[in-house]
């Protein structure tokens, strides 16, 4: 790693960890302190359970959303780095490295919290705690050895966070090329078109008068999420291999797109 890449990564990592800490504090304030104050004010303090509130924190969602949003912020960091004699290439590489580090740190923290704090408070086993996560689809794939399943779930989630962050980089890089007016249009139009498309596909599949065949799409989605080919499709028996490989390939494609957008970045007047 070159000196410039090291210092850029260090700068981004320090800032991101600081922002993540602030996000954690904000979540604690919103989900513990405010409900506590409301319970006190409304006289329903007996309904408020601090241990349950603490146990119910699902840090994974916060970390995923944080990585996506933080990585999509492009232009301000670009300005600072180009002002300080750093290339676009170094900025891009430092963001990738930072994303990977935050993904690992974040998932290790979330896993520690889930298995060492939440599970004991709920009074459930590590396996039961694993099956309360979105990874539950794959939770029994490696048989009865719960720690192997947990280990693979960590790897799965880290890859998911990295791919999510890199997708944020690609989207943020694209938006950074647009004017503020263009950014607003994209942010409004794209979700509307996406929702319309989903509705259209759903209605077309249900409507027997319309002969669009989306079976291939359903089969593709089944394949991508690791739908069992032979065994009965029950939660826990899905294969994590295909989605992990898909996320790795998707992440690589997004990284290439982000790199392309990054190369086009320029200072706006």
């Amino acid at each position: 790693m070159s000196t410039k890449l090291r210092v850029t990564t260090r700068y981004l990592l320090m800032n991101q960890l600081k922002a993540l800490g602030e996000a954690f504090l904000a979540v604690i304030a919103i989900f513990i302190i405010i409900p506590f104050i409301l319970a006190v004010v409304s006289g329903n303090l007996s309904d408020f359970s601090l241990p349950n509130t603490i146990a119910n924190f699902s840090w994974g969602f916060l970390i995923g959303a944080f990585i996506f949003l933080y990585d999509s912020l492009t232009y301000d960091n670009f300005k600072l780095f180009i002002q300080n004699g750093l290339s676009r290439k170094t900025f891009w590489a430092a963001k990738i490295v930072t994303t990977a580090i935050i993904a690992v740190i974040g998932e290790l923290f979330a896993a520690f919290y889930r298995y060492a704090i939440s599970a004991p408070i709920w009074g459930i086993s590590a396996h039961a705690a694993l099956m309360k996560t979105p990874y539950s689809l794959y939770g029994n794939f490696f048989g009865s050895n719960v720690w192997i399943n947990i280990l693979v779930s960590l790897l799965f989630t880290i890859i998911f966070f990295i791919a999510t962050g890199i997708t944020g980089m690609a989207i943020g890089g694209g938006l950074a090329l647009l004017s503020k007016w263009g950014q607003r249009i994209v942010i409004v139009v794209v979700p509307v078109v996406a929702i319309f498309l989903i509705g259209f596909v759903g209605n077309s599949s249900a409507d027997k008068q319309v002969h669009y065949d989306f079976t291939w799409l359903a089969n593709l989605l089944k394949f991508l999420i690791g739908y069992p080919q032979h065994e009965p499709a029950i939660a826990g028996s899905f294969s994590p291999a295909v989605p992990m490989i898909t996320m790795l390939i998707g992440g690589a494609i997004m990284a290439a797109i982000a790199y392309g957008f990054n190369q086009l970045l320029k200072v706006k007047n």
């Binding site: 850029t8 700068y11 300005k79 600072l80 180009i82 002002q83 004699g85 200072v267 007047n269």
Partner: peptide, 29 residues
């Protein structure tokens, strides 16, 4: 790029950062 510095009218520094921290950032980068 590390051998040149351009001071321009466009503000390239984060608005929320303190001046002393921006000096540190410059030293680091």
């Amino acid at each position: 790029l590390g051998k040149i510095y351009l001071m321009s009218e466009v503000n390239m520094y984060p608005e929320r950062s303190r001046v002393k921290n921006l000096f540190k950032t410059t030293r680091l980068l």
